[in-house]
């Protein structure tokens, strides 16, 4: 999962301090693995260098966690591009897809679009596997079926998430 894009996405709804960003990330996406402060600073300094965020103010007392960051136009474009690009279908995608859906809801984008684009990308892989299966022997069929069922599992999760978008929107924007 891209921590940079996730932090940028969180910033899109308004400027935040470093510690506030970490807290928001941990609360929404860090259930099993909270961020270290070090990760936040190194990510923010990279985003600063690339012009995707800017420093919006510094609280007295110094320390990098006291800096307030705001997203730039270039940053918003970057988030937009990341959300619109489907993920390569591979195992254990859930956390990235979940993050994208939540960020789309937080930033009032169409989360259904993310689902449609991702479904399309998965189907592209599934068509290739189905074709290989059709032309292959039994061993090919079994191997392709294994991959197909995994891709299908991702999609079923996405469809279910789509059906719960309204509830999810309520929960994350509360």
């Amino acid at each position: 999962m891209s921590i940079g894009h996730t932090l940028l996405g969180l910033l899109e709804s308004g400027p935040r301090h470093g510690y506030d960003l970490k807290r928001a990330f941990d609360e929404k996406f860090g259930h099993d693995r909270p961020l270290h402060y070090g990760q936040v600073y190194s990510t923010m300094s990279r985003l600063l260098k690339n012009g995707l965020v800017e420093v919006d103010g510094i609280e007295a007392g110094g320390g990098p966690e006291r800096k307030r960051y705001a997203i730039t136009e270039a940053g918003i474009t970057d988030v937009e591009r990341w959300l619109a690009t489907p993920e390569k279908p591979e195992p254990y995608l859930q956390s990235t897809l979940y993050t994208k859906v939540v960020l789309a809801l937080l930033t009032r984008r169409d989360a259904g679009d993310i689902l449609d684009t991702q479904r399309s990308e998965h189907l592209r892989s599934m068509r290739i596997l189905t074709d290989r299966k059709r032309k292959g022997d039994l061993a090919d069929q079994l191997i392709c079926d294994h991959a197909l069922f995994h891709l299908e599992a991702d999609l079923r999760w996405l469809e279910l998430t789509a059906a719960r978008l309204d509830k999810l929107r309520e929960a994350v924007t509360r």
Partner: peptide, 28 residues
């Protein structure tokens, strides 16, 4: 179909949401 493994036999897909269709081939 709502089943992805069945849709994988197609050449392309369109998605219908709230009565509006989206041609996924022409989106990407």
């Amino acid at each position: 179909t709502h089943e992805a493994r069945v849709a994988a036999y197609s050449d392309r897909e369109i998605v219908v949401r709230d009565g509006r269709s989206r041609d996924m081939e022409r989106v990407v």
